[in-house]
Design a binder for these strands. Structure first.
Length: 493
RNA sequence: CGGGAUGUAGCUCAGUUUGGCUAGAGCGUCCGCCUUGGGAGCGGAAGGCCGCAGGUUCGAGUCCUGUCAUCCCGACCA
């Protein structure tokens, strides 16, 4: 039987998460507090996320570029809301040389004329570039994305969910009108973020608008996708901001219009998702046996484990494995685990902990019968095992992978639906956020939100977009006033 | 930034209460044999500035002072 090295979700959800990260070999701690080493297994998942998003970003007309890591501190002060939001957590570079202190140590020696901020996000430095790139209406829209690392000196960190340094993509665009910027903001939310999470990561998301209290520092409006984790808490998985003309005014992004001599400020947007998505992935699908990867995202979709005793059997099973891998070709991403120094049982467990969607076993009996055993990760034990002939495998495997993909999405969706409660009173709201999301009519103020956060540790995650809004009118869950919109409350990561 | 805990082998930890001979275990690693359909077994070996600095003492992993770091919980977190 498997050694239990992973804390169960029921016993300690937070520890379970940390155990999965460790046992699946996704990341390692670093000598610097809050920073993280992303190990090859974890980085391979990030590369899959990058590929899927990069394609969608380019398909919607954007191009990649790269902007500097360092930002003059004065840039950050140009947009008042922005500086207020980020100042508490920026890392600052103040010197550029180390000299010996005479005792074997090194001390910073040469102060910079102007301190440099290590980017916590790039609206400022990109706004500065945009101010020079945009002169005419012909220069718009300007549709840029960058893949980069950013630093936010967080006080409390957790692997992938919140780290001092993290990897992300940030899109930055400039447009001629408010409506065009708004359209861009929503297009990213739907066609890039939501599409990728639901169809590739198999994570159902709520798409909605942030309240004034929760929106991005400096934005006109913020939209987000919110996912539910298995403990019923919310994780903001991606954001898309309509920045209005706030940053254009702060950074002088101006253009001359088509039919007039007047100079206008551009309308800009920004949007991003990060390595936090790996945290979302873990908490959406994994179980007490380890990581569970949705097939479309899995860097390796199936592992062939040969089983043998004698040299002859070894030769026969390995040859069969190679033959089957070749027959599958590019229909699935398959790896052969030919390691000779660990037992099949060890391999089974290792690939299970690492979340590989399908395991293919080939032993002497299978060679004789021209079959393999397929085991699916989302259904542990005998229940998920079945025999398939060699001839059927190249078709059966991709079909099984798609079946698992759908099953994972359906399972996550069913879980989420079962943990969203419509609430009509404060008592019901308080009870609902203990175990999941609460949907409520809302007409409260920002102060009312603060009060609920203080008392219930829950915030308004979003005001769901039309598709999820019932329309009509109701009664505010807190104030009893007439309300025209519903919101989702939850505790969040 | 507040509260709690921990720093001893690559990893997880025991030993510290009550100072005392050459600092231990399990896992992992290396070598050999044997094994392989759900984390095998036996034998052998390597591996330590006991976080760092100072102090008390005949003697410090253990007591005292200081310091650094990490982890967990909370507050904060576009």
């Amino acid at each position: 039987m498997a050694k239990q090295t992973i804390t169960t979700r029921e016993k300690d959800y937070s520890q379970w998460y940390l155990d999965i990260v460790k046992e699946a070999d996704l990341s390692d701690y670093s000598p610097v507090r809050g920073c993280m080493v992303i190990k090859p297994t974890g980085y391979a998942i990030w590369e899959m996320i990058q590929q899927g998003l990069d394609k969608r970003i380019k398909d919607t007309g954007h191009v990649n570029a790269y902007f500097p890591l360092f930002i003059p501190v004065s840039f950050l002060t140009k947009e008042a809301q922005h500086v207020e939001g980020f100042a508490p957590e920026v890392a600052v570079v103040t010197h550029h040389r180390l000299e010996s202190d005479g005792k074997g140590g090194l001390v910073p020696a040469a102060p910079l004329d102007e301190p440099l901020v290590v980017r916590p996000t790039s609206e400022a430095i990109i706004g500065d570039s945009f101010s020079r790139w945009v002169q005419s209406w012909r220069d718009l829209p300007l549709l840029i994305n960058q893949w980069a690392n950013v630093v936010r000196w967080e006080l409390r960190t957790r692997p992938f969910l919140r780290t001092a340094e993290f990897l992300w993509q940030e899109g930055h665009t400039a447009h001629t009108t408010h409506d065009e910027a708004e359209e861009e903001t929503l297009k990213i939310l739907h066609e890039v973020y939501s599409d990728f999470l639901e169809n590739v990561m198999a994570i159902p998301v709520f798409k909605g608008q942030k309240t004034e209290k929760e929106k991005f520092a400096g934005a006109l409006r913020t939209y987000a996708i919110e996912a539910m984790m298995q403990d019923g808490k919310a994780l903001q998985a991606g954001t898309s901001h309509n920045l209005g003309q706030n940053f254009a005014k702060a950074f002088e992004i101006k253009f001359q219009g088509q039919n007039q001599n007047e100079i206008e400020y551009a309308w800009t947007t920004s949007w991003g998702v990060s390595t936090r998505l790996i945290g979302a992935l873990i908490m959406a699908h994994s179980d007490d046996d380890g990581l569970v990867l949705p097939p479309r995202l899995a860097p390796t979709q199936a592992v062939i484990v040969p089983i043998y005793k004698t040299d002859d059997e070894k030769a026969a099973t390995l040859a069969a494995a190679e033959q089957l891998k070749a027959a599958i070709g590019d229909k699935a991403r398959v790896k052969i685990d030919a390691r000779d120094n660990v037992t099949p049982g060890f391999k089974f467990n290792e690939w299970e902990v690492k979340g590989i969607p399908v395991r293919i076993e080939i032993g002497p009996r299978d060679v004789a019968n021209q079959t393999v055993v397929l085991g699916r990760r989302d259904r542990p034990g005998k229940e998920g095992k079945r025999f398939v002939s060699w001839a059927e495998l190249p078709e059966a495997l991709p079909a099984l992978l798609e079946e698992i993909q759908t099953a994972l999405y359906d399972r996550a969706k069913a879980f989420r639906d079962a943990h969203v409660t419509d609430v009509a009173s404060y008592a019901e709201l308080a009870a609902a956020v203990e175990t999941g999301f609460a949907r409520a009519w809302w007409a409260g103020s920002r102060e009312d939100e603060d009060k609920i956060q203080l008392e219930l540790k829950a915030t308004i995650r979003c005001i769901p977009l039309e598709a999820d809004q019932p329309g009509g009118e109701g009664v505010c869950v807190l104030t009893g006033q007439p309300a025209t919109q519903q919101v989702l409350f939850a505790r969040s990561y």
